[in-house]
Design a protein around this nucleic acid. Structure first.
Lengths: 336, 336
DNA sequence: CGACGGAAGTTATACGTAAAACTTGCTGGA
DNA sequence: TCCAGCAAGTTTTACGTATAACTTCCGTCG
């Protein structure tokens, strides 16, 4: 209250409590046992409370040489997926006294800005989605611990890698559709070059290769309702026999496909079974509800953060991919 | 390259370039004109490049007494709305050399954590949505500049307030529905106490009060598809004449209402016109596409950040609410 | 009775940067 | 000729914290 407009420092607290600055640091840092008497410690705490003291984090970070802050690099926030990844990472971080700074890699446009300059924070480590490709060049070369999400476990540039078991998800989708009797497949693929999408294509192709009498066509679209709508519309207008199952790289693409199917005068799932991947809120908002692969985005973020913490503490990160599960809803049925 | 594992400091650069640390600071801070010769400046830049020097931000922040980092407090990231607010704010921030740290106020559960402790970053200011109510108590009392989003312009605790013209949006919705001939309205309201939702209720009620022969009922639901589904189902099952227009507090509620309407064997818009508010991607994913109010979330975030920058620089922030616009799609039609 | 050790502090220092204040050498104008 | 003034730097300092190293005062034990 007394001092002008500038924030109180530990020295102000010390003066108010009649002790040295060092004593304040000891007490508030909870390292005072055996160094400061209990009554004095209480006086210090009271003074800090009274003055509304908050430690200057810049000074603390400088002194300690670490910031307990990590950067999360994501491709975009246009669906809730990465928002949930952030939530999971932030929760684990908070439990360990860490903060998480978000860097959504700007989409295509502009000179790929430097995530570090932008985050404007001193960092202890980085978690990055492999989809944020343009941001990665800036990160490489920096010697910060780096955990990669959804990235090729081999040849990765990260210190550690955390993956969802996407391949198993596609396996489950494929077996579900095969069991229903489908043989003619269309793959609506994302047109972004990224490991996570390559896995989908590879797994789908290899599963169908192993199933006799099946055929697979692939179309590509940007990940947007509009893009998926156009690509699917074109595919449905093409001559030849119509596929009976449409496997989409994610839920948003599936939502766009729904619209194309409706416009073509067809119905899901009677004329065409559709599957997605992600299990966004969108999946149950559309009609019929979408059969999709549930990815636990929050757990993904949690695991990513735990891996980074492990790296920071010199422990080996957990191994193994995160399990995913097929959620069967109304968009898949036996072919007619 | 030479030194061990620790990051190079400006002193290392100075040594490599054969100058003093001060010279390095001048050159890299672009304040060298008239103080350092051009060849020397180039030598310094080369040395910095060579060593991969990155300034220690903690030290810089401590020295300058400011961090060029602001905190954005949002209620949640379950729709893309606040993700876009973040994007807009971050864009403006980046253009001014600022970073934005996100704090999604944890939903209800747990002891309302301290946003500042969590962000773990030294801050220059705060932008907060009024919906993140629980986080606000922790913020109040701190003397940081605070810009409130979507908050009561009177009695606000912020240094400045930035609002979308929600009232005008509801006005446009109401006039649209009245012009179509609707007289019996149902309001599906969010059950969160927040100024932004109060405005919707107040404006809708006052507009219908002024329109002769209209009636208005209100139901409340948590903002989720499931919640809206249940509330709407109950309302449709109630005895008495069915309303012909359903005004929802946001798009997500509308998406839930769609499902209830379908389950009741009714059709949008033939049996019931529905409107939303936000214009999320969801609005065009559902069938029929939703008539809603377009909120420019990115512009909202931009304006919020500009207001904070203004406050920080002692300038008066821009006045006036951000315009919104009605987007008429297929979910509204004349009553039968 | 002396000294030894622990309690309860204090003093001093370093973290890396930005910038104010100072130094040095030279050139050009009165 | 002499000094003003400028270019081209250097030296020094402060930011606020955490902690290592030091001090002082007592009580106790050999």
């Amino acid at each position: 209250m007394a001092r002008g407009s500038t924030r109180p420092t530990s020295r102000d607290v010390a003066q108010a409590a009649g002790v040295s600055q060092a004593a304040v640091s000891l007490v508030l840092g909870d390292k005072w046992r055996g160094r400061v008497s209990a009554p004095t410690a209480q006086r210090v705490r009271d003074a800090a409370q009274e003055l509304g003291y908050r430690p200057n984090l810049a000074a603390r970070n400088l002194r300690l040489g670490r910031t307990r802050t990590v950067l999360l690099v994501v491709p975009a926030l246009t669906t809730e997926f990465f928002a949930e990844v952030y939530t999971g990472a932030a929760r684990v971080a908070a439990a360990h006294g860490f903060g998480v700074v978000l860097y959504p890699s700007p989409e295509g446009v502009g000179p790929a800005r430097d995530p570090f300059a932008s985050a404007q924070a001193a960092l202890d480590g980085v978690i990055a989605s492999s989809m944020a490709a343009d941001a990665l060049t800036a990160i490489r070369g920096d010697q910060l611990p780096l955990v990669m999400l959804d990235s090729d476990p081999e040849g990765s540039l990260g210190t550690a890698t955390v993956n969802l078991d996407i391949a198993d998800g596609i396996r489950q989708v494929t077996e579900h559709l095969l069991a229903l009797g489908h043989r003619s497949f269309l793959h609506l693929a994302a047109d972004i070059p990224s490991w996570t999408f390559e896995v989908r294509a590879r797994e789908l192709a290899s599963r169908l290769d192993a199933a006799p009498g099946t055929e697979l066509r692939t179309i590509r679209a940007p990940i947007s309702i509009e893009g998926a709508l156009r690509a699917t519309e074109a595919a449905l207008a093409a001559p030849g026999p119509r596929p009976t199952a449409l496997v989409c790289d994610d839920d948003k693409l599936a939502a766009g496909a729904y619209k194309a199917i409706r416009r073509a005068g067809l119905r899901v799932p009677d004329d065409l079974s559709v599957t997605g991947l992600d299990d966004l809120g969108l999946a149950t908002a559309i009609d019929p509800e979408l059969t999709t692969v549930r990815l636990d985005a929050e757990a993904f973020g949690e695991r990513g953060m735990r891996a980074l913490l492990a790296v920071l503490e010199g422990r080996p990160p957990e191994k193994g991919d995160l399990p995913v599960s097929l959620v069967v809803r109304g968009s898949t049925a036996p072919p007619r």
